[in-house]
């Protein structure tokens, strides 16, 4: 990166660190921070959407839809997210490829499962094996987003359900008394009101979502934990220009600080939103 980095062996102190911290490998670490941030930014609204759909379905007057919503919430909530991450990504990937295989290669005669192998025709492969590496990475990222959204959507559904039920019954009855239809009560009274009750739970979920991002590596995305572990491990002079001992503790300290700063910022913002929402509500925490 810097010109004086040409001969790392001669460096000392700050200039050594300046060069060390700007190696291509460290750039991968910094890049992975962006990966984590974009995952969060894409997953959060997607999960909320899943959650809202799940909660609405679970409240639906139409029984099959209600059961679907309830089963979704129950199953996903019942299984550790880490098990989902280990298992679901492969299952999703194979599921997508199976569907594409059915659509694109109708006259394929061989079985899809041959022993332990999962074989679909070349055109159905996702991504196509001719695709450049970045397509593979984006696809892996996309699978990660879906897995995260499914898991956190179920939890969001539960929070939203609780919030919908926490809206004072009297308000809904009043709305009905004014002649609003079921749909109108839902969209005009229930949904705007529930956010106040949902916010503490959703804030908690947001923090948990942040907390879950280190599990990204299990999904095949090279995340900050992967790079911290890789960079922090002791390095032998034979394989690197910057040999050092076991520095994982320091790298993980860095990650700890990163996450703490991130959460601190999130909480400040969420607290502001909460104050705005609870303005004028008759509860202890509200500003008059």
């Amino acid at each position: 990166m810097f010109e004086f980095c040409a001969d790392p062996a001669s460096l000392e102190g700050i200039s050594w660190f300046a060069c060390y911290l700007t190696t291509g490998k460290h750039m991968s670490l910094y890049w992975s921070i962006l990966t984590v941030l974009s995952l969060l930014l894409i997953t959060a609204p997607t999960a909320l959407l899943f959650g809202f759909a799940g909660a609405s379905a679970a409240r639906s007057g139409f029984a099959p839809l209600r059961w679907l919503g309830q089963i979704y919430v129950a199953i996903v909530r019942g299984v550790p997210d880490i098990a989902f991450f280990l298992f679901f990504v492969i299952a999703l990937d194979q599921g997508f490829e199976y569907l594409r295989h059915q659509a694109l290669c109708p006259d394929w005669s061989e079985p899809i499962r041959q022993g332990n192998d999962f074989i679909v025709c070349k055109a159905a492969k996702l991504p196509l094996s001719t695709a450049p590496q970045w397509v593979h990475e984006v696809y892996g990222f996309f699978l990660a987003v879906i897995t995260f959204a499914i898991v956190f959507g179920a939890f969001a559904a539960n929070v939203l359900l609780g919030a919908m039920r926490a809206v004072p019954q009297a308000q809904l009855e009043t709305a009905q008394a004014y002649g609003m239809s079921r749909r109108q009560v839902f969209w005009r009274i229930l949904v705007p009101q529930m956010w106040l009750y949902a916010l503490p739970g959703l804030s908690n979920l947001w923090v948990i979502l942040i907390k879950a991002t280190p599990l990204l590596f299990l999904l095949g995305v090279e995340d900050i934990v992967y790079w911290a572990r890789e960079l922090g491990g002791s390095k032998n002079a034979r394989f690197t220009d910057y040999p050092h001992g076991d520095w994982r503790l320091w790298y993980f300290l860095g990650l700890l600080v990163f996450y703490l700063a991130f959460t601190y910022l999130s909480e400040r913002i969420l607290a502001k939103v909460n104050r705005r929402l609870s303005r004028g509500q008759g509860i202890v925490g509200a500003t008059p």
Partner: peptide, 8 residues
Amino acid sequence: NFINDAGE
């Protein structure tokens, strides 16, 4: 196999 300084 390992990842070198350049990240490769």
